[in-house]
Computed example of a mutant assay.
Amino acid sequence: MKITTRKTALSGLAALGVAALFAGCASAPSDSGNASGAPVASDFVPCMVSDSGGFDDKSFNQLGLEGLTAAADTLGVKPVSVQSNSDADFAPNISNLVDQNCNLIVTVGFNLAAATKEAAAANPKTNFAIIDDNSIVSDNVKPIVFDTAQAAFLAGYASASYSKTGVVGTYGGMQIPPVTIFMDGFADGVAYFNQAKGKDVKVIGWDVKSQNGVFTGSFQAGTESKQAAQGLIDQNADVILACGGPIFLSAAEAIRDSGKPISMIGVDADLFETDAQNKDLFLTSIMKGMKPGVESVTVDAAAGKFNSTPFVGTLANDGVGIAPFHDFDSKVDPALQGELDKIKADIIAGTITVESPSSPK
């Protein structure tokens, strides 16, 4: 087992944004018009383009829009959002927002990288931010990325501790870095539990060494996702991590249909809080601070403080984390939370280091 990583410095954005990760709210606006105290042009237009999962995915698109909306409320301006129904919508949707004279266009997801890069090059006076991609090097593009392997490591450890069958499983939507980073951290966290406890909890659905696993091919809930979850259930997994926006909804269906005591690990948001129908299934969730990240980038841009330095969310700056156990609190090992607190502190200190090939560079 190889578990290595690097530490990421906290950017100026992080200092503004990550404090709101678990609080979920922005600072009150100042008399001068916004939380930063800097004057904001009344005609500032913040905009956003979703990935194909849509803004009601209870996950990364929804969190991104919540961040944009919160910033717009703080600034006293009106946001504009455009939903993509397929990959073919990305470029036209961005072009549409450019034509509407948006000052900041936030694109949600790795899949929008090519369209964002092209639009940014063609419109150097427009500022862009992109969630889950840092491949674009341009003065007018700010990456908002997250080292979710660190938080997923904690969730993997918790899953291994909780599992009664000794089998936990994971599958993804598309095999892209923002998805596989969750799976790497999860599997490494299970491996760390096995090493620490002398156990042999098995991970199915993803192999860290070969970087091969189970994927549905999209971020859509439906037959493919339900079948992937059922495949894990058939192999005796009793904790399932579904990575890829709303695909977790199909995993929940498969679990309900099975009638078995199977729990889930959510991603992006605390799905106990965002998905009332399935809240009883979530052992915990691996959270990314997309809402505060987008909110802070937007407020900065409105105040004339936009820059292209990437924001990288980590455990150290609270840009990533895991949700409380909620209804599972009385069901987990009483020692588990203390163990997780120690592991988190060791990751932050560098005593335990966590790396995924997909970790932000």
Rank of each mutant, 00 (worst) to 15 (best):
T5V: 13
L10C: 09
F22A: 14
S36W: 07
V40I: 05
D43Q: 03
D43Y: 08
F44V: 15
S52M: 12
G54W: 03
K58M: 13
F60L: 11
L63F: 09
G64L: 14
G64W: 13
A70F: 15
A71Q: 09
A71P: 13
L75V: 08
G76M: 09
V80L: 11
S86A: 15
D87M: 07
F90C: 08
L97W: 04
V98H: 00
C102W: 00
N103Y: 07
T107F: 12
G109S: 14
A114P: 02
E118V: 12
N127C: 09
D133H: 07
N134Q: 06
S135W: 06
S138E: 08
D139S: 12
D139T: 02
D139A: 14
D139P: 03
V141Y: 00
V145Y: 03
Q150S: 09
Q150H: 09
F153C: 10
L154F: 03
Y157N: 08
K164D: 08
G169A: 05
G169S: 14
T180P: 06
I181W: 07
G185Q: 14
V190N: 03
Q195Y: 09
G198K: 08
G198I: 15
K199C: 12
D200F: 01
D200W: 00
V201K: 06
V201R: 13
G205Q: 03
W206S: 02
W206N: 04
D207R: 14
S210A: 10
G213M: 02
F215G: 10
F219Y: 08
Q220D: 06
T223W: 11
E224W: 01
E224S: 09
S225I: 01
G231H: 00
G231K: 00
L232P: 04
D234G: 01
Q235G: 02
D238W: 00
V239H: 01
I240W: 01
A242K: 02
G244I: 09
G244W: 13
G245W: 06
G245L: 01
E253V: 01
I255K: 02
G259E: 07
S263Q: 06
M264H: 07
L271H: 01
F272C: 04
F272I: 11
D280F: 09
D280P: 08
L283H: 00
T284D: 11
T284A: 04
M287I: 12
G289L: 03
G293W: 01
V297D: 05
T298G: 06
V299M: 12
V299K: 03
D300V: 05
A302S: 04
N307V: 15
T309D: 13
P310N: 11
G319C: 02
I322Y: 00
P324Q: 12
F325N: 11
F328Q: 02
V332E: 11
D333K: 09
D333R: 14
G338F: 05
L340F: 00
D341G: 10
I343R: 05
K344L: 06
G350T: 11
G350Q: 15
T351K: 12
I352F: 04
P357W: 04
P360V: 10
K361E: 10
